[in-house]
Nucleic acid binder design. Structure first.
Length: 702
DNA sequence: GTCCTATCAACTTT
DNA sequence: CAAAGTTGATAGGA
């Protein structure tokens, strides 16, 4: 028994380090406080919003606003405001430098009244201009949109030149033609935020009407295209700025919007170029869906099939593919020895009908030939070989899949399941860096021990839903607490960051598989604890993770500040999570106004926590305790509340901030304590030097 | 009940 | 403009 429980694989088993598994919950009810704190005021205490849309008249006038630089550099200079200290006065919103300036070129072009004032900005959006707002929209709207896009195209040259006159929501106009990391990120985040919200609306409509809005991906993309929220519009051969080898995508549209692959369906993207006096056509990128038998043993080689049917629909004759379009382009690229971007698609393991795409870098066409297909028609084949010296991407993904399946051996493999069966998915322990055989002893536990009730005067109660709560059912008291919105999509993706999320709990009548219990169901992705080069143990994922996916709770013991101070004399706060630290604000929800039906109710991203919650994961915890800090994290925390034993308890749940590729380390922003604001001895506490290595690194944390 | 495949239709890009 | 290595819904079979 003990052998099974050991953290170490080595012979020298230290009995003090035996993992003790206690998957039971311990509850400690305490005194209730006032109910007011549960329901956020209009501006709950917390971070200031980037911009106040509820008071558009107080937004600075355009002249003023245009002086505010919108670069990434400036964004970093946004004053950080303590969750504790912020007293909300409306002008604060105007004082805070906006990360973007919300004025779109659309308004300039289309709405003659638009003068850059946010007010008219919203009006412009609420008109029918280019807003694909209802299922039964007429062709009129589409027409408008097309016309708009035409006009926009003419104007593009000016924008590219950087006259500074126009700007787009979310993207620095100068990044429209040639993007960077910042603009790519922003486009992707905005896209997915709108898409999630559309899914949410769709889910809730299903109950009330038969008409569900389909293809949220297309609709989100449409909205962004109309508003010019795109980047890397200039089509190019080779590297696309801001996109890294190994980046993953969940929709073809995402790759269109950031300029990686311009074809919404087509597998081959190409363009015409002028080479001296001669016109030529060259391939830009190919998407391999992995269904045409183009997989080879060698992950650096791709055999890609040309495009074109093998029979003519009219005369029903077998035909050969023709050397035209994409086929021609690939042929030309081969002769010119040009680079071609390769995107590899694989089935999503968790959602078999969906696909995940990974950018695998640059390849060159080494060979091409014609094969006979099953029907007898000729099929072009192109052998693409990956250029050396690029970061391993697709190969890593495939390897991770093998590790998961147990069909490939691993270097430095220590333990198959650190959680010892507490999690339904095993958490492996790996160290391929040095000799350390595992982290110090702790008890694996999935949730909070000794939680303190969240101050409510009224007794907490659960909902009365039968079996499962259904989005759009306004009789469900849990949905009511979430202001009518179901916090998660049908596939358990968080829709928006909110001051507080109310989940169903043990007191609800619905069953444990109710979709409103996402943070209580344990790990959903396969993860592993691994030894980093310079930051101790860390957590990484073997699976690709979609933005908004639940990662894990921050499990541990709820402690008092006094106790933290007592223990905090050494470097003892390594395993402390504290909601009252200062956290860099960031925008995860989309801007209001990008899509009519979605604009009106974009939740605030200021967390509402009436009294600080401090969790120690030193002795008891889950994988959350291994997540390292980063100033450019890929995970964020979100307060979640649900009731147990007539009381409500606050939990901290982690969600993916963006799409996370397999084998990437999971990190979140630890926040920091302002010097002089901490109590007692911890005031003198040293900040830790940050080694996150990101371009936006603050230099310290903790 | 679930899991897989096949098929269909709505759909946007160049 | 037509074509396209899409996507999600739906149905039927193992």
């Amino acid at each position: 028994m003990e052998g099974n429980n050991t953290v170490h694989a080595s012979d020298s088993v230290d009995k003090s380090r035996i993992v003790e598994v206690k998957p039971l919950r311990s509850l400690a009810p305490v005194l209730p406080k006032n109910i007011q704190s549960c329901f956020p005021a209009k501006y709950p205490s917390g971070f200031p919003p980037f911009y106040s849309f509820e008071k558009p008249q107080e937004i600075p006038l355009p002249k003023e606003a245009e002086e505010i630089p919108v670069d990434a550099e400036t964004a970093e200079e946004i004053p950080v405001v303590s969750a504790k200290e912020t007293t909300r006065e409306t002008p604060l919103a105007a004082k805070v430098t906006p990360i973007r300036f919300y004025k779109s070129s659309v308004d300039e072009e289309v709405n003659p009244r638009a003068d850059g004032d946010v007010n008219s900005f919203s009006e412009g959006l609420n008109g029918d201009e280019c807003v694909d707002s209802t299922r039964k929209r007429g062709t009129e709207n589409i027409q408008n949109c097309k016309e708009f896009l035409k006009r926009k195209k003419n104007k593009k040259t000016r924008e590219v030149a950087g006259d500074g006159q126009s700007s787009n929501i979310g993207v620095n106009p100068s990044r429209n033609a040639d993007g960077d990391h910042e603009s790519v990120n922003r486009v992707l985040m905005t896209f997915d935020s709108i898409r999630r919200r559309l899914c949410q609306l769709e889910d809730s409509k299903e109950l009330n009407s038969s008409h569900a809005i389909k293809r949220a991906d297309l609709r989100a993309s449409n909205a962004l295209t109309c508003k010019g929220v795109k980047t890397n519009l200039r089509r190019r051969v080779g590297v696309v700025p801001g996109i890294e080898v190994g980046d993953i995508f969940f929709f073809r549209m995402e790759m269109c919007l950031v300029g990686l692959h311009g074809q919404s369906m087509g597998g081959i993207d190409y363009m015409n170029i002028k080479d001296g006096s001669k016109e030529d056509t060259v391939a830009l990128s190919v998407v391999s869906s992995g269904v045409y038998g183009d997989d080879t043993e060698d992950n650096d080689v791709l055999v890609y099939s040309g495009q074109g049917e093998n029979f003519n629909k009219k005369d029903k004759h077998v035909t050969d593919q023709k050397l035209q379009r994409g086929n021609l382009a690939l042929d030309r690229s081969a002769q010119r020895h040009d680079e071609v971007r390769v995107i590899r698609g694989l089935r999503d393991a968790t959602n078999r009908s969906a696909k995940i795409y990974m950018y695998d870098g640059l390849y060159k066409i080494q060979d091409s030939w014609i094969e006979r297909g099953k029907s007898g028609g000729g099929i072009f084949k192109y052998k693409l070989v990956r250029l050396p010296g690029q970061k391993s991407a697709f190969a890593t993904w495939k390897l991770a899949q093998k590790w998961k399946a147990g069909s490939a051996s691993r270097n430095g493999f220590i333990l198959a399941d650190l959680s010892n069966g507490v999690e339904s998915i095993p958490v492996s322990l790996v160290n391929d860096v040095d000799d350390e055989k595992g982290p110090a002893f702790f008890t694996y536990f999935m949730s909070l021990k000794k939680p303190k009730p969240f101050g409510l005067v009224q007794p907490s109660f659960g909902c009365n839903c039968n079996k499962a709560c259904i989005p759009g059912d306004l009789n469900c008291s849990c949905i009511q607490r979430n202001e009518g919105d179901f916090p998660y999509t049908a596939n358990s993706i968080l829709v928006s960051r909110k001051p507080l999320i109310h989940e169903c709990g043990p007191m609800c009548r619905c069953l444990p598989n109710c979709k409103n219990r996402v943070s209580q169901t344990g790990l959903k992705q396969q993860m592993e604890v691994f030894k980093t080069k310079d930051r101790g143990w860390g957590l990484r994922t073997l699976d690709p993770i979609r933005a908004g996916s639940f990662i894990c709770e921050y499990a541990g013991e709820v402690v008092d500040r006094a106790k933290v101070c007592q223990n905090g004399e050494g470097d003892d706060d390594e395993y402390i999570f504290d909601t009252s630290r200062i956290y860099q604000p960031f925008k995860w929800n989309h801007e209001p106004g990008l899509l009519e039906e979605v604009s009106s109710n974009v939740p605030s991203e200021d967390y509402t926590i009436p009294s600080p919650l401090i969790i120690s994961a030193r002795n008891v915890g889950n994988v959350g305790r291994f997540m390292n800090h980063s100033c450019s994290p890929n995970v964020f925390w979100q307060p979640v509340l649900y009731a147990e034993n007539n009381q409500s308890f606050l939990h901290i749940a982690f969600f993916a901030l963006k799409h996370i590729p397999p084998m990437a380390e999971l990190t979140y922003d630890y926040g920091f304590v302002l010097a002089g604001h901490a109590e007692g001895s911890s005031a003198q506490r040293r900040k830790k030097k940050c080694l996150c290595g990101s371009a936006k690194c603050r230099g310290f944390f903790g």
